[in-house]
Amino acid sequence: MSSTVLRARFTHGPLPILGACFLWGTTGTVSSLAPASAPAAAVGAAGLVVGGLLLFLTARGAREVVVRADRRLLLLGAVTVAGYALAFYPAVARTGVAVATTVALATAPIVLGMRSRPLVTSTAVAGCAALVLGGGEAHVDLVGVGLAVVAGLSYAAYSAVCAHLIGVGFPARAVVGTVFGGASVFTLPVLLWLGVGWLSAGSGVAVVVHLSVLTTFVAYLLFGMGLRHTSAAAATTLTLAEPAVAAVSGVVVLGERLPVVSWCGMAVLAVALAALAR
Results as ranks from 00 to 15, higher is better:
residue 172 A to H: 12
residue 190 V to P: 12
residue 218 V to Y: 10
residue 159 S to G: 13
residue 29 T to S: 14
residue 151 A to W: 10
residue 132 V to Q: 12
residue 256 E to A: 15
residue 88 F to C: 05
residue 103 V to Y: 13
residue 194 L to K: 12
residue 245 V to A: 05
residue 133 L to E: 11
residue 149 V to H: 10
residue 193 W to N: 07
residue 134 G to T: 03
residue 233 A to I: 09
residue 273 L to H: 01
residue 122 S to R: 01
residue 45 A to D: 08
residue 183 A to N: 03
residue 124 A to L: 08
residue 274 A to C: 01
residue 41 A to N: 08
residue 184 S to V: 04
residue 10 F to A: 15
residue 250 G to L: 11
residue 238 L to G: 05
residue 273 L to I: 07
residue 35 P to A: 13
residue 251 V to G: 14
residue 204 G to C: 11
residue 66 V to F: 14
residue 8 A to C: 01
residue 234 A to D: 15
residue 219 A to V: 10
residue 11 T to E: 11
residue 216 T to M: 13
residue 106 A to Q: 13
residue 96 G to S: 05
residue 79 V to L: 13
residue 169 G to P: 15
residue 166 I to P: 02
residue 175 V to E: 02
residue 82 A to F: 03
residue 17 I to D: 07
residue 61 G to A: 05
residue 161 V to R: 07
residue 52 G to S: 13
residue 46 A to T: 09
residue 169 G to C: 14
residue 72 R to H: 02
residue 136 G to C: 08
residue 262 S to T: 13
residue 125 V to W: 00
residue 29 T to V: 14
residue 87 A to R: 00
residue 239 T to I: 14
residue 124 A to V: 04
residue 107 T to N: 09
residue 119 L to W: 14
residue 53 L to W: 07
residue 62 A to T: 05
residue 236 T to V: 12
residue 20 A to K: 02
residue 192 L to F: 08
residue 57 L to P: 07
residue 84 Y to S: 01
residue 205 V to S: 04
residue 92 V to L: 10
residue 43 V to E: 12
residue 210 H to V: 08
residue 16 P to N: 10
residue 33 L to H: 14
residue 50 V to N: 08
residue 227 L to K: 06
residue 136 G to Q: 04
residue 53 L to Y: 01
residue 78 A to D: 11
residue 185 V to R: 08
residue 180 F to N: 05
residue 226 G to E: 10
residue 272 A to S: 10
residue 77 G to H: 08
residue 270 A to H: 10
residue 117 R to L: 03
residue 33 L to S: 15
residue 84 Y to H: 12
residue 59 A to V: 10
residue 58 T to M: 10
residue 217 F to C: 00
residue 67 V to M: 13
residue 1 M to N: 13
residue 26 T to Q: 06
residue 63 R to E: 15
residue 220 Y to L: 06
residue 110 I to L: 15
residue 23 L to D: 03
residue 252 V to R: 11
residue 254 L to T: 08
residue 225 M to A: 15
residue 157 A to M: 01
residue 230 T to E: 08
residue 26 T to H: 03
residue 47 G to R: 05
residue 101 T to R: 04
residue 105 L to E: 06
residue 207 V to H: 01
residue 27 T to E: 04
residue 181 G to V: 06
residue 224 G to I: 03
residue 64 E to W: 01
residue 155 Y to V: 08
residue 260 V to C: 12
residue 101 T to W: 02
residue 67 V to Y: 10
